[in-house]
Design a protein around this nucleic acid. Sequence first.
DNA 1: GTCTATACCCCGATAGAC
DNA 2: GTCTATCGGGGTATAGAC
Lengths: 186, 186
Amino acid sequence: MTRKDEILQVSARLIREKGYVGLSMRDLAKAIGVKAASLYNHIPSKQAILAEIILHLAEDFTSQIQHVAIKSISSLDKLKQIIEHHVDLSLHHPNKLALLNNEWMHLEGQSLADFKTMRNQYEEQLRQIINQGKANNELKALHTELVLFSLLSTLRNLNVWIKKRGSIPAEQLKNELHQVLLNGIS
Amino acid sequence: MTRKDEILQVSARLIREKGYVGLSMRDLAKAIGVKAASLYNHIPSKQAILAEIILHLAEDFTSQIQHVAIKSISSLDKLKQIIEHHVDLSLHHPNKLALLNNEWMHLEGQSLADFKTMRNQYEEQLRQIINQGKANNELKALHTELVLFSLLSTLRNLNVWIKKRGSIPAEQLKNELHQVLLNGIS
DNA sequence: GTCTATACCCCGATAGAC
DNA sequence: GTCTATCGGGGTATAGAC
């Protein structure tokens, strides 16, 4: 792992704990074992750390949902694959996902604009999949925005839950999530 | 409204936008129309602002769920009343709720400990209601922790959704939420 | 209850030696 | 690539006049 990767990884963990504004470059440097000035040989600014972490993940989500959207499968299967991708990323990059969810408002300039664009794209793709499912009678005729919101709320919180509940096998988590999110609890 | 109430209200809005660490007492004072030093005639510290807002709301949630838990009604009706309380608070105190969800980690000392205690109490009460529902065959035999997590994820994000989606009648929102959360979407 | 002035501290970032 | 030293700015909070 390069020093830059180390900086990004440690930053993700510390920003998750202290928030972007709450983490100082001096604290970050201390956690890595160098002086603050040395960080600037690997990254141009504190802001660039946040942008690189968040935009990289946002691009991953965006390309995955576009890939799923054009498949010739049922809307329910599309939703299942989207859920599974959230589970996989939540298991492998929990800290970086936390930044995507909670620190994006500290992005600035073009990074912030790009993030918002990708976020809207993602929600729009998911909205269309839900509406397809309703048209095919795979999904109940519920308020699309509320279904979208409920799904995303749970998926975006997966990393919190995984951190608290400890290790549950990925496959079991996916199966149970499909049931809870798609079939209901009562 | 007293000046102190004004400080709490404006603080909630600005902390929601900038984060607790990102909001300075100078910015807060400017938004209210006084100088920063004047704030300290009404509140003892910046930290006390955060603690008062969050702990007040946390006490509200805790007392409500304890009140519901001991009622002689079905588990499903208990869940409905809990959902409705989240909707009501999300509509009336969206900014303060955002702090409860996103800024609690910046609490310090006893305030942080008290918050965590109330949070655990709330989750434990909800866990028991879910388990009762499973025992009564009102709820499916799903992983309790996953049901708890999915419910709370959606309820805790209500204020985000309400802010983005604009005004939907409270009664309609409650009805649709009951369907989505309790009956499933497929 | 609000003000000005200020104490004391930490911030992000850069310059330049090694 | 890391260091020391430092610049310029902004942070919370207090003292004391009005």
